[in-house]
Structures are given as structure tokens and as C-alpha cells.
Amino acid sequence: MSDLKNRTRIGNTVDNELLKKFKLLSQETKIPMSKLLDEAIQDLINKYNKGRK
């Protein structure tokens, strides 16, 4: 049983070069990859929801 109360595990594939850059960004900023991914997903939702009511 998972102890994650506010998070859900997902599985996906990512372009190799994007993943390298993503890991480096996480290391350089000291921000966990999961938090960076949350921010990126929120940005995409905001981008595609503009103009929708």
C-alpha cells in the first residue's frame, strides 16, 4: 500500500535528451523533479485553458 496521500504515481516515457536536461535542472536548482513536473503540468494546463470558460 502506498503512503502517498496527496500524490499519485504515474508512468511515462520521455525523450532522452529532455530527461538529461530535466535531471540537470533539478540538480542545479535543488528542486525535486516531482515539484518541477507539477509546475510544468500546471503551466501546460494554464496554456491550453486560456480562452476557455
Rank of each mutant, 00 (worst) to 15 (best):
N12R: 11
P32G: 08
Q42I: 14
D3L: 15
N12L: 11
R9W: 02
P32S: 10
A40K: 11
I10Y: 10
D3M: 06
K47I: 12
E39G: 09
I45S: 06
K50A: 15
N12P: 01
Q42K: 15
D43Y: 12
T8S: 06
K30Y: 02
I45P: 04
S2T: 08
N46C: 12
D15T: 00
E17R: 09
R52E: 13
M33S: 14
N16S: 12
S34G: 03
R52S: 15
K50H: 07
E39Q: 15
D38Q: 14
K21R: 11
D38M: 04
S34I: 02
K30F: 02
N6I: 00
M33W: 00
R7Q: 05
G11M: 04
E39W: 01
V14D: 01
I31S: 09
D3N: 10
L24S: 15
N16W: 00
F22Q: 05
P32W: 04
R52V: 14
G11F: 00
T8N: 12
D43P: 01
K20P: 01
K21N: 15
R52Q: 14
K23G: 10
N49L: 08
V14R: 03
L24Q: 12
L44S: 03
D15W: 01
K50L: 15
K53P: 00
E17M: 09
N12E: 04
G11W: 01
I10H: 03
T13M: 11
N16D: 12
S2A: 08
G51Y: 06
K47W: 05
V14M: 15
M1E: 06
K35H: 06
D38P: 01
N12Y: 11
K20W: 00
N6H: 04
L18K: 07
N16H: 05
E17N: 12
I41P: 03
P32R: 09
N46S: 14
K21A: 15
K21Y: 05
S34H: 08
K35I: 13
K21I: 09
G11I: 02
I41K: 05
F22R: 03
L25T: 14
G11A: 13
S2H: 09
T13R: 11
R9T: 09
L24C: 10
L25C: 11
F22K: 03
V14C: 13
N46H: 12
D15A: 05
D3R: 01
I10W: 01
